[in-house]
Computed example of a mutant assay.
Amino acid sequence: MAATRLTATVAGCAAAAAALAALTACAPPGANTDNTNDVSAQQQVPALNEVGGESLAPVASTPAVPLTTTLKAASIPKMGKVVTDQDGFVLYRFDKDTAKPPKSNCVDKCAQVWPPATTDGNPDLSGVDPSVVGTVTRADGSRQITLAGWPVYRYIGDPKPGAWKGQNVGGVWFVVDPTGKKNLTCLPTPAPTAVQPPAASAEATTNGDGGTGGY
């Protein structure tokens, strides 16, 4: 009987180790797999809450996101081909948007967490085909950049340039590649939960479907 229990325990530990290895292999750079946060991450951005948890870590404040003046094709570890802005931050697309015709459905609280990549002209392009770049006018009158018709965004949960913690958030947000397609090279599982909007906008109104946009 003791030998049976020992065998079951060893098998259970092996299965847990395999699951942890799979999660680590597709975790964004700097992500933790032990449900703790390193000091540098705490100083820059609140941690994602555990999937299934009851609350989200609040964001104390978030600086205004500048206009996107540059679109640059880049390649980053584990993820591969991405598009970044002039500051090196990775851009994303949203499954609840549409490309034909281009339309953003991320507004209000959603747009506080996923700031639209807006422009007042034509962004400089590096490695991105001009034929896939366009704009769509948002409800507030600003012009949001599109790739192959898909509006693109930054994510306030990314602590630094090159980070991609927004990948697969809510199962609807994905890193965008230079052609406008979703980059599905690496999908963290289970789908991460987004950070909350900045405290100043926590009481903002929501759009027709709750404005949650996957958080």
Rank of each mutant, 00 (worst) to 15 (best):
Q86F: 01
G52C: 08
V107I: 05
I156T: 07
A73W: 05
A64M: 02
V128N: 03
A200S: 15
P188K: 11
P178K: 05
T189Q: 15
C13Q: 15
P161S: 03
G52I: 11
P116S: 05
P77K: 10
S201T: 12
A202D: 14
T68L: 02
G134I: 03
M79P: 04
G127Q: 06
P188D: 12
P151N: 06
P46R: 14
R138N: 10
G88H: 12
A60P: 14
D177S: 00
A148W: 11
P188I: 08
K100E: 02
Y215E: 09
N207L: 00
A21K: 07
L6E: 12
T62E: 13
K182N: 10
A191P: 04
V113S: 13
V128I: 10
P46F: 04
R5H: 00
Y155H: 08
T70G: 07
V45I: 13
K182S: 11
T179G: 06
G180Q: 06
K96S: 07
L6D: 12
A204V: 00
F94T: 01
R143F: 02
A15S: 13
V107Y: 15
V10F: 06
T33C: 14
T206C: 12
K103Y: 07
T212V: 02
T7R: 13
L91C: 11
V195E: 08
T135C: 03
V65S: 07
K96E: 11
P63R: 04
A73C: 04
V51Q: 09
K81T: 09
V136A: 10
W114Y: 05
G80L: 00
P63K: 05
A60M: 12
Y153C: 03
A148L: 07
C13Y: 13
W164V: 03
V195L: 12
A60N: 11
G213N: 09
T33S: 14
Q144T: 10
R138I: 00
W114Q: 09
D87I: 00
Q144R: 05
P29M: 11
T185D: 02
S131D: 03
D158G: 02
T189V: 06
D95M: 08
P46A: 13
D34I: 04
S75A: 10
P123E: 12
Q112E: 15
V195Q: 07
Q167M: 04
D124A: 15
A19V: 06
Q44Y: 02
V59S: 15
G214P: 02
G213L: 01
N168A: 11
G213V: 01
S131T: 08
M1F: 10
V133T: 01
N168P: 02
A111M: 03
I76Q: 09
V133G: 03
A25N: 09
K165H: 15
T62M: 05
P197W: 03
